[in-house]
């Protein structure tokens, strides 16, 4: 659980999710230039969308308020 939490809260994972989302949302056009037939594409895109919302729900649960570190490290991006 702790590892899951660490993974979800990492900016790298957010970048990965962005990339994955971008690819998934383009998939109907990547595999067929004209896109899928519309009802299928409609269902597919909403499914991907819902999964993205779900993923962001879990990510948001694992994001803590990160104030500047008071433990002596140099200021850094998070």
């Amino acid at each position: 659980m702790k590892r899951d939490r660490r993974l979800l809260s990492r900016p790298g994972f957010q970048g990965f999710l962005f990339g994955l989302g971008l690819v998934m949302l383009h998939w109907p056009f990547l595999i067929w230039p004209q896109g899928w037939r519309q009802p299928h594409a409609y269902l597919y895109l909403f499914l991907v969308w819902a999964l993205l919302v779900l993923a962001m729900f879990f990510i948001s649960r694992n994001l803590g308020p990160r104030l500047p570190s008071a433990r002596g490290s140099e200021p850094s991006e998070d």
Binding site: Q14, L17, F18, L22, L25, L52, M56, I59
Partner: peptide, 10 residues
């Protein structure tokens, strides 16, 4: 926006 919001925490 859904994709962009992924980076909102930063």
């Amino acid at each position: 926006p859904t994709l962009g919001i992924i980076f909102w925490w930063t």
